[in-house]
Nucleic acid binder design. Structure first.
Length: 461
DNA sequence: TCTCCTGGCACGTTTGAATGGT
DNA sequence: AACCATTCAAACGTGCCAGGAG
């Protein structure tokens, strides 16, 4: 991954000197987050990432690993991750592609994963990459281990929250900022549907080394078709040309005529990325097969989240046509919100720039990325949403405070650790969407946008 | 019949205790 | 006694696959 420093000139990222303005400068938009191993994520995203969910809980692969900068070294921060529905649909895998199979099931109890090292000083978070390796996904709504509960055959994407707080108890009073990375969206499944994803996982996950064809091909794979197990014969052969083709192309209103699309880089991208196919009609492909002359622009680039004002138009143009299945089936959901697939030109840095009133309202772009809401206009942010709360009535302060929907008197049970909490693990939280709605409504007066998906698990506060 | 989910299985990685050498 | 390196086994994480539920 390219260093942030290297990208600054390219994306108008405020120089460090801006931070010299004082501590507030940090809070007002200098926090920057980058996803490690963006190439791997993009490789998965191109095919249509799937994440296995099991009752006992399953780790993500690739797992989230981020880098942070712009934090106040001596201030303490808490890092959290939650999963947000991409849209309001349930999907099914049919003939090599994902199709809408109906409306989404009622949201399971939403939980937020708290990084085990939280809280820690900014210097701690910035000195090394931050891994969320231990984060586990489950489909067990009665899970007692605090794993993040998801519905199978539904699409989600992780959100990363940075909260400046000295301890878990003060989180709700603290400012926090939220980042997402478009290439990290995935479909939760109980068994892999797309054999391409399986192959990619096996190739990259060390724990799945035993399933690799190379060298020691054990009996499990030796006596069967490595690509098309009997049960998965429904999936066609993986021809080289099809390998990276979008699994969602069935949704991209531009249809299922791959040959026709092969005319330019942009077209090429359509064939390779379920997301980029529609989001970057004229953009360069992020595919490994792409002929992008500047690798940095493709994979090593970092993504601004949201982008600086001056950068918005471009990004909107790039992401305007979300290839999200939902978007192509009528749910504009986040499409507009800029859940753009990995944007090859856009640096993969999640940044909270200084607030600019003229910019799109962050809160409008935020949650909209998750639900079947009307396609947002130019105000949509790009690939990453910034949950900044400039709209909350404090111009110039992009970060927002966490308020408990239940008021200050609301106890904070699960922050303190196992104890009598419902979920033993101290680093997990549960959430209540209804409560969440109240919370967001309180802040933004726009319940429609904020009510569907929680930012945090307030129910346990 | 089809789709989706579950649980057991084999295999590889990770982790930490035990051991031995310096 | 303290430190370091190596070994080894248990725990854990994976995808595969047969079978069951709806």
């Amino acid at each position: 991954m390219q260093s942030i420093r290297d990208l600054k000139p390219n994306f108008s990222v405020p120089p460090p000197s801006s931070m010299a303005a004082g501590p507030d400068a940090y809070l007002q938009g200098n926090i920057r987050m980058t996803m490690e191993d963006p190439e791997l994520w993009k490789n998965f995203c191109e095919i249509g990432t799937e994440m296995i969910i099991t009752k006992p809980g399953r780790r993500m692969f690739p797992h989230s690993k981020i880098n942070l900068s712009g934090l106040i070294p001596c201030a303490k921060y808490i890092l959290l991750v939650d999963m947000v529905p991409e849209d309001g649909f349930r999907y099914k895998w049919n003939k090599e592609k994902w199709e809408v199979a109906g409306k989404a099931e009622p949201q399971p109890p939403c939980r937020t994963y708290l990084h085990p090292e939280s809280p820690a000083p900014g210097s701690h978070w910035m000195k090394q990459s931050i891994s969320f390796l231990k984060l586990k996904l489950t489909n067990n709504t009665l899970d007692q281990h605090g794993h993040i509960i998801l519905h199978s055959m539904h699409r989600y994407h992780p959100r990363f929250h940075i909260v400046q707080a000295d301890d878990l108890f003060s989180v709700r009073w603290s400012v926090f900022q939220t980042f997402t990375f478009p290439e990290t969206s995935f479909t939760a499944v109980t068994a892999y549907q797309n054999t391409k994803i399986t192959k990619l996982k096996i190739d990259h996950n060390p724990f799945a080394k035993g399933f690799r064809d190379e060298g020691t091909n054990k009996k499990r794979r030796s006596n069967k078709n490595p690509v098309c197990p009997d049960k998965r014969s429904k999936t066609s052969e993986d021809s080289p040309a099809d390998f990276c083709r979008s699994s969602y192309e069935g949704y991209d209103g531009e249809g299922g005529d791959p040959p026709k699309r092969k005319e330019a880089d942009g077209v090429k991208e359509e064939r390779y990325s379920p997301w980029a196919a529609e989001r970057e009609p004229g953009g360069r492909t992020g595919s490994p097969a792409g002929a992008d002359p500047d690798p940095r622009d493709v994979y090593n680039a970092e993504q601004l989240v949201p982008a600086p004002a001056s950068y918005q138009p471009y990004r909107f143009q790039e992401y305007g046509k979300s290839p999200s299945p939902s978007s192509s089936v009528g749910s504009s959901s986040h499409g507009g919100s800029g859940r753009g697939g990995f944007e090859s030109r856009v640096p993969d840095v999640a940044t909270v720039p200084d607030h600019d009133p003229s910019k799109p309202r962050a809160h409008e772009a935020g949650p909209s990325a998750c639900g079947p809401q009307p396609l947002a206009g130019p105000q949509d942010y790009t690939g990453v949403l910034n949950m900044t709360m400039a709209q909350a009535g404090k111009p110039g302060v992009i970060s927002h405070h966490i308020y408990s929907p239940y008021g200050a008197e609301q106890p904070l049970p699960q922050w303190s650790g196992p104890g009598p909490a419902q979920y033993p693990p101290p680093h997990h939280l549960t959430a209540d969407y209804a409560a969440q709605a109240v919370h967001h409504g309180y802040h933004h007066g726009n319940v429609a946008e904020w009510s569907q998906y929680p930012l945090f698990s307030y129910s346990c506060w």
